[in-house]
């Protein structure tokens, strides 16, 4: 019974992933990071532009989350809620928000340590292979937690691409850009496929009448 209640709760949260738009947003984030890193490497700017661009990258995150929130609201209101119903989630309690931030922070520090120091220096493993591995594990966890089966396909693809790219003979920075772009593309393809299937399977009442 306890498990059943938990499963229903998780399934309710999984509705956020039902239309694939969240996958596409994740893909755009990785794609944006890859593009900004590529541009920074390509432009070879002198001071103060290199510093300005270094500051601009975290700002890109902030701008992304701002636009993401607006865009998601618009998409959900105009596409998802009209087809499969409206839901508003409970705002997280302060304690829960702090807990999430701490877990996110610890995971971020752990990933950064693994990719920049422990992986290449201690374990002698390609940093981008570790990055791909971490992303695959996070994706698997999301798939398990929300019960979203497509993530069990996305995760090995992420890892496989990271493995393939890290085996290529290219510059380390270019490799990191390629892995980020590949992970982004995986998420976008996953989201796009889900979005198309969602639109085909769920029609609005106007579409059904037509």
């Amino acid at each position: 019974m306890k498990n059943t209640i938990g499963q229903v709760m998780r399934k309710t949260y999984a509705y956020w992933w039902v239309d694939g738009t969240m996958d596409m947003a994740m893909g755009l984030l990785f794609g944006g990071l890859a593009a900004s890193n590529y541009l920074m490497g390509k432009l070879q700017l002198s001071e103060p532009w290199d510093l300005i661009l270094a500051i601009a990258e975290p700002l890109l995150f902030v701008l992304f989350w701002f636009l993401y929130g607006r865009l998601m609201k618009w998409i959900k209101e105009h596409i998802t809620y009209r087809r499969t119903g409206y839901v508003a989630y409970q705002p997280k309690k302060k304690k829960k928000r702090i807990q999430s931030a701490v877990i996110g922070g610890v995971m971020g520090i752990f990933t950064a340590l693994m990719v920049t120091y422990i992986g290449p220096e201690v374990l002698k493993i390609e940093p981008m292979l570790i990055a791909g591995c971490v992303m695959a594990v996070i994706t698997l966890y999301l798939g398990y937690w929300y019960g979203v089966n497509r993530f069990f396909i996305v995760a090995p693809v992420e890892f496989g691409l990271a493995l393939w790219i890290s085996s290529l003979s290219m510059d380390g920075e270019l490799k990191s850009i390629a892995v980020m772009a590949a992970i982004g593309a995986t998420w976008i393809i996953s989201g796009l496929a889900t979005f198309i299937l969602y639109l085909l399977r769920n029609r609005t009442s106007e579409e059904q009448e037509a």
Partner: peptide, 20 residues
């Protein structure tokens, strides 16, 4: 099932509840 869903969310419409 209905109360579990409504306990998890702030509010939901009839279509969503029927689907879930």
């Amino acid at each position: 099932v209905i109360t579990t869903i409504l306990y998890t969310v702030k509010e939901a419409d009839f279509t969503f509840l029927q689907r879930e």
